Simulated scan of single mutants.
Amino acid sequence: MRKNILLSIVLLSICSALCFSAKVKRVDSDKLTDLDGFWNDNDVKIVCDSLIDQCVKSPAVRKKSAVIESKTGDMPFAIIGKIENNSSEHIDTSIIENKFRNAIINSGVMNFVASKNERDYLREEKDDQQSTTSNAKAIGNETAADYMLIGTVKSIVQKEGKKSVRAYFVDVQLVDIETNRILWTGEDDSIKKIIKRAKVKL
């Protein structure tokens, strides 16, 4: 009797493992995948490609950058402020921030300095170097940013029965830190999805 119970437990465990084991299929990163209708990696790419292109081609940004470069001999420096998530779902906006920073640096329009959190780590390291190394990096030689990039992600959700519509609005601004003047502002509202939920069969 005891052996039969143990055998049943073992068989159930094996069946559970077979039934619920994950099947993984690799796909190209550019392939459109939208399983649940929520914000995803494809939406990030679409939005960032559009807004970054607008930013680097902005006449106001190029004009101001040319003035700074003529005075300093170097491209202007920017810093990522914060892109806030004001939508109805969890969105990791740090992915958007990093995409902006990387693309704009590679565009050759401006340089970027470390973010606030990154600067805190760097300052701790420089403080530690003062007493532990002979070639410690000097404190107080940080490069000040000329611009700050800030923005928001918002969403509007409409529902009726098993059908819902999700629309996303991403606003980004490039601000002159010294004057608070907004040099460039861009909005992308191209992400809109209609989601139909399947009826539950009883």
Rank of each mutant, 00 (worst) to 15 (best):
A198G: 14
D171V: 09
T185L: 04
D176P: 09
E187K: 15
D188H: 11
K199V: 15
I177P: 14
L174F: 12
G186A: 02
K193T: 12
I182L: 03
I194E: 13
V175W: 10
I191C: 00
D171T: 13
V200S: 09
R181H: 13
E178Y: 02
V200E: 09
L183E: 06
T185A: 11
V175D: 09
N180D: 15
S190T: 11
G186T: 07
D171Q: 05
I191D: 01
I177E: 14
Y168T: 00
Q173W: 11
T179A: 01
V172L: 08
T179H: 02
Y168F: 12
K193I: 10
I191Y: 03
V175R: 05
D171H: 06
E178S: 13
I194D: 07
Y168N: 02
L202K: 13
V175C: 12
T179C: 03
L202I: 11
Y168E: 01
I191T: 03
V170G: 02
I194P: 00
K196C: 01
V175L: 10
N180C: 07
D176R: 05
I191Q: 10
T179E: 02
L174R: 04
K193L: 11
L183W: 04
E187R: 14
V170Y: 04
K201F: 09
R181T: 12
D171W: 01
G186S: 06
L202A: 11
V172K: 03
N180T: 15
K192V: 12
K192P: 03
D171Y: 11
I194M: 01
D189T: 15
A198E: 15
W184I: 07
L202H: 13
V170C: 08
L183A: 04
D188T: 02
K192S: 13
R181A: 11
E178V: 08
R197T: 08
T185W: 05
T185Q: 15
K193D: 06
F169H: 01
I177V: 15
I194N: 05
I195H: 02
E187A: 09
V175E: 10
W184V: 04
D189A: 11
Y168S: 00
N180R: 13
N180M: 11
K201E: 15
E187Q: 14
I177H: 10
I177A: 12
T185D: 08
V175H: 11
I194W: 04
T185S: 14
L183N: 00
V175I: 15
V172P: 13
V170S: 05
L202P: 13
L202C: 05
K192N: 09
L202S: 12
K196Y: 09
V170K: 05
T179G: 00
D176W: 06
V170Q: 07
T179S: 15
